[in-house]
């Protein structure tokens, strides 16, 4: 800042500048430099290294015998990867849609000038404060047929009640969705609530005078106003979905079998426990592509928006 703010003739006299002047110019860069270097090395450096490894036949340890895109071919032929990728689509899709709907409904209900709103808001937002590991463990107990809901309802006398999604290979992925939605919908609610609060109160009055019913007011006027919020919420939720690892590990460990594998757990399993570094790296790069596919349009629209704004 000091440079851009200073008048141009200061640059001409730079040679005569005192030590403090030089320090003033250099200090910001010095302060930023270490974290910049660290980020460059550990984020982008390892990203490149992972990409390089994905082109090799590495197994237990990194080797540099380049095999081209053979690991990618193996990856897409891999049954377990296909399950993981399909799971991501199911899990991500349901997670985002249910979170949005639930968050919006909660936000609208909470926005009706109710009593104790602050308390309720905090209660709904609290799951977000928990680590996904904790969420996973809690829901593992709740959904465990022998300990949780099933055993509770059977204990009430409904002997035929069955709720065993967690151990059913076809349904386990939906159990994952339940836990993830529980964790994140309060956060989405907070986003929507902020959006709703920014809406001019006289819009509701105008609509009331126009004779619109409350559902109509929300559907035609309020929800269209929340479009930017929906957009941000989808971005954030999509990231959470793609990066989901700890929740799966804590809740199902990828099981039963590999029925609840997600790309992140697949990558971890192959890279670090099954001695398939090359294949794991290829899956990691595919995940990066997935994130970029979401991030790039987002950044594009954001940057374009700020230029116009």
């Amino acid at each position: 800042m000091s440079q851009t703010d200073s008048p141009p003739r200061r640059g001409a006299n730079a040679g005569r500048h005192s030590l403090s002047g030089t320090l003033e110019r250099v200090l910001p860069r010095l302060v930023v430099a270490p974290s910049f270097a660290v980020a460059l090395f550990f984020v982008y450096g390892y990203m490149i290294w992972t990409f390089v490894l994905s082109l090799t036949g590495s197994r237990m340890l990194p080797q540099y015998d380049f095999v081209g895109f053979e690991q990618y071919a193996r990856l897409f032929a891999n049954e377990r990867w296909n399950v993981a990728a399909t799971n991501l689509v199911i899990f991500g899709g349901l997670f985002i849609v249910i979170c949005l709907i639930l968050g919006l409904v909660l936000a609208i209900l909470l926005d009706q000038r109710i009593r104790q709103e602050g308390v309720l808001r905090t209660i709904y937002l609290y799951p977000m404060a928990l680590s996904l590991i904790v969420t996973g463990v809690v829901w593992r107990w709740i959904l465990n047929p022998g300990l949780g809901i099933q055993s509770l309802v059977r204990g009430w006398g409904f002997e035929d009640f069955t709720f065993d999604w967690l151990v059913d290979p076809d349904m386990a992925i939906y159990a994952l969705v339940i836990a993830a939605v529980w964790q994140a919908s309060g956060f989405v609610m907070a986003l929507f609530l902020a959006g709703l609060r920014s809406i001019d109160d006289s819009l509701f009055k105008a609509a009331a005078l126009d004779g619109a019913s409350l559902p109509r007011v929300y559907w035609r006027i309020v929800i269209p106003c929340l479009r930017p919020v929906v957009f941000s919420a989808v971005m954030i939720l999509a990231h959470i979905a793609i990066k989901s690892f700890d929740l799966v590990m804590a809740l199902t460990g990828g099981g039963p079998g590999y029925a609840t594998d997600l790309p992140a757990t697949f990558m971890y399993a192959h890279t670090f426990t099954r001695g398939q570094i090359g294949l794991g790296s290829a899956s990691a790069i595919m995940m990066l592509c997935g994130v970029l596919a979401i991030l790039v349009p987002y950044l594009y629209s954001e940057l374009r928006g700020s230029k116009h704004g």
Partner: peptide
């Protein structure tokens, strides 16, 4: 809605979408 009145607001209250 049943009163047959219309109102103009200070903030205009136009439906933004």
């Amino acid at each position: 809605a049943e009163r047959d009145i219309a109102m103009v607001f200070q903030s205009y209250a136009l439906y933004p979408s």
